[in-house]
Design a protein around this nucleic acid. Structure first.
Lengths: 250, 250
DNA sequence: TTAGGATTCAAACGAACGTTTAAACGAGGC
DNA sequence: GCCTCGTTTAAACGTTCGTTTGAATCCTAA
């Protein structure tokens, strides 16, 4: 069953194959679209296969037939958009490095290579594309082991490349500090993209404002660039403020 | 049933009440401790009441008897630690404002008033306290409506106070921009505290490093301060880099 | 046209879930 | 002593879940 499913996937991806189109959209794509929307809205655990197949207008057993399991379906939903995005990120960075060589690429350029593919994804006219980033942001924080492992593998190559690039752009910054700042950047990015309504309301931002991914990333990028290029933490004011006030509170 | 549960809670919180202690720890607290640990590890949906009551060593029906429902139990788990933390944040800020008056409190001081109570929570010797921040970070990204609404209400007062303080410290910054930056700060903070293993590994940080909440917040605070106090986004390099490169990629 | 593999379908499976029930328990007050 | 009431207990409730089954259906290739 796994064999047939994998074979079907290859055939579908290559365009109109032999005969598995049912109506305007093939079953597999209908499932992916419905799953993407529902996973995004309710999360992985709270989304049932029955709601997915009902929304997609396909039989309940179709998911297990085409994808094997609910977990594999979730990974397929992520892969469909994540894989091209990360490939585009690496391609952009490679092009930037080629142009700047032998000098290192500037920090703001490297950051833009991370953000532009995310922007393109946010503007994908394909159904659900404009909200996919929310699903991605939520997946980052999901405790399910299979999701965490999947994301680790998906991002490993890209993060490694960007870390090297940032290291060249910021030679004076210790490697460990760079690791932390990259961690913070990925955190702020994914959290912001997840766009939970809870804290949106707290920040007194209207839904129409938070729904505009492009404006969101345009504001986030300078914010993160400032943090990334800031002086070492031990010599800044907050650390001293923490030191002074902690003694008083403890 | 709700009445009796509420009455029991008050009695327990006041110390050793009439006669509801069963062993060293009362039933309600045993449930809260077990629920906190399991919710933290598996999330809300993936944690069953049976696993909680088994871990706590109490009867399955005890949760519905004492808390009413699984959702109310989750809120009780959060409230137990979140309420004191946010109250401490507001108290710290109030004290800072009293000392600085009539001048505005400096940004780094305001930030420290947000971070110090989180640090104290991370170091709480009470069982599970050191890992509670992870649960909190995950709750931020949870799509369940009752969680989002609960967090909104819990944070509304505190965020409003801090937003006003930041507004005084950064008078030249437009209100809208400040809202966004606060949103980014809350995002980076909660995401970092959630501490998903997936991206930890990506950042090549060892588990022992990421488990140290104090060091984590000490590195995060300067990072966020730099972003908070950075120049307006439209005049920075990233925005221009985005403008230039976007045309090429699109 | 026919054989055969891929796909769809209705139905059911067993397990796990949150919640409810009614009886049993245990300590204090009259 | 018995009655009361908060609490605990074992058992079962009804529902929903992901997955499996086996026959029906469709399309292509021979």
């Amino acid at each position: 069953m796994d064999e047939s499913a994998a074979g079907g996937a290859v055939a579908v991806d290559r365009g109109i194959p032999f005969a598995e189109a049912r109506g305007p959209v093939a079953t597999k794509d209908r499932i992916l679209d419905a799953a993407e929307a529902l996973f995004m809205e309710h999360g992985f655990e709270a989304t049932s296969l029955r709601s997915i197949t009902t929304t997609a207008g396909v039989n309940l057993a179709a998911v297990n037939y085409h994808f094997g399991s609910k977990e594999e379906l979730f990974q397929a939903v992520l892969t469909r958009r994540l894989d091209p995005m990360n490939q585009q990120r690496v391609a952009l960075l490679t092009e930037l490095e080629r142009r700047a060589a032998p000098a290192p690429v500037a920090c703001e350029k490297i950051l833009s290579a991370m953000f532009i593919p995310a922007l393109n994804l946010a503007r994908d006219p394909a159904r659900g594309g404009e909200n996919f980033l929310r699903l991605l942001g939520r997946a980052y924080a999901d405790p399910a082991p299979f999701i965490r492992q999947f994301l680790s593998e998906q991002y490993a190559v890209m993060i490694s490349r960007f870390k090297t690039a940032f290291g060249r752009a910021l030679p004076e910054l210790p490697k460990k500090e760079l690791s932390w700042r990259l961690h913070f950047i990925m955190g702020a990015l994914s959290y912001t993209l997840a766009g939970t309504d809870a804290l949106k309301l707290i920040a007194e931002l209207t839904p129409s404002e938070t729904a505009d991914d492009e404006m969101l990333l345009r504001r986030l990028a300078p914010f993160l660039l400032a943090g990334l290029t800031s002086p070492l933490p031990d010599s800044t004011e907050v650390s001293r403020a923490l030191d002074g006030d902690l003694k008083r509170v403890r």
